[in-house]
Amino acid sequence: MAVIDVRNLSKSFRVSASDPGFRNALCHFWNRKYRQVDAVKPLSFSIEAGEIVGFLGPNGAGKTTTLKMLAGLIHPSGGEVGVAGHVPFKRQKAFLRKITLVMGNKQQLIWDLPANESFRINGAIYDIPDAELAARIAELAAMLSLDKQLSQPVRKLSLGERMKCELLASLLHRPEVLFLDEPTLGLDVNAQSAVRHFLREYNRKYNATILLTSHYMADITALCKRVLLIHQGSLFYDGALAGIVEKFAPYREVKLEFTETVDRMRVAPFGEVEESLDRSARVIVRREALTSTVEQMLAQLPVADLTITDPPIESIIAELFTQGTVNAPASATKP
């Protein structure tokens, strides 16, 4: 059975619009104008136990809203959600013990005290016996390579150390389902990879389900086999990470090296020429025509070497989101 099951989940907000100025404030007070914002349009997906799924989309796409609906912080406007056998927004104690939400831009640790003190509080709230708590802290601290940082006031820690402590605090109750909202926000490369490494290990050890959002593609490519792409509140891709290339980049780049000088005019018929030098050229070719084009190239041009590459996934996604060329497939497909 799926750990996370989402059917036609949607959320719309009523936003009041007001203009500055005293007179407008008065008018606004009496006569409010609202407009409806559909933050999340009906979306459906399900995630199996132990999966790590990446949740991608530009700012304001509705990722955080969706995560919060899954964590029970926001009441959905429509649709059904089931997480670990519970309805999130009822916020039953049993449900809350099974999940955690880590937000890269917010912190729960007490600023002026060592992280250990915050852990004690979480231990008390989640009803973890002292001995067990100490064992769990030690275990997670070892996985995160934290040690003396735990006894320093949080305000004196670096951003990376603080994030690791946040993770530790959020995982003390051994949640089965982890919602991570930008867990590596603002961290340097080393800290990012440490966090990634930890998440993978935690996932393996406890068969935890992880749904994460991130702006860093490296997080996604390192952790997730499966991704959900969301744009303007609707899901337009759900499938393997590798599948994105297939689906959204129906082009390949063919790199040619010649044995003699080849004029640009001779390369042009095969596709869009990106670059043409004396003895080399780069040509963009449609995927479905790839085999026949390559055959013809080999037959008609003095080819010394030929390589075919995928465009990098980061640039595909970036292009998808910036250009809004998301119109392509309207319905989400599963692999």
Binding site: A71, G72, L73, R91, A94, L96, L101, K106, Q108, I125
Partner: peptide, 18 residues
């Protein structure tokens, strides 16, 4: 304001009590 009310709502303990 800081959105940390979320952390309180996520804990299995009455929010008003917390």
């Amino acid at each position: 304001q800081n959105g940390t009310l979320d952390f309180i709502l996520l804990k299995p303990l009455d929010p008003q009590f917390q």
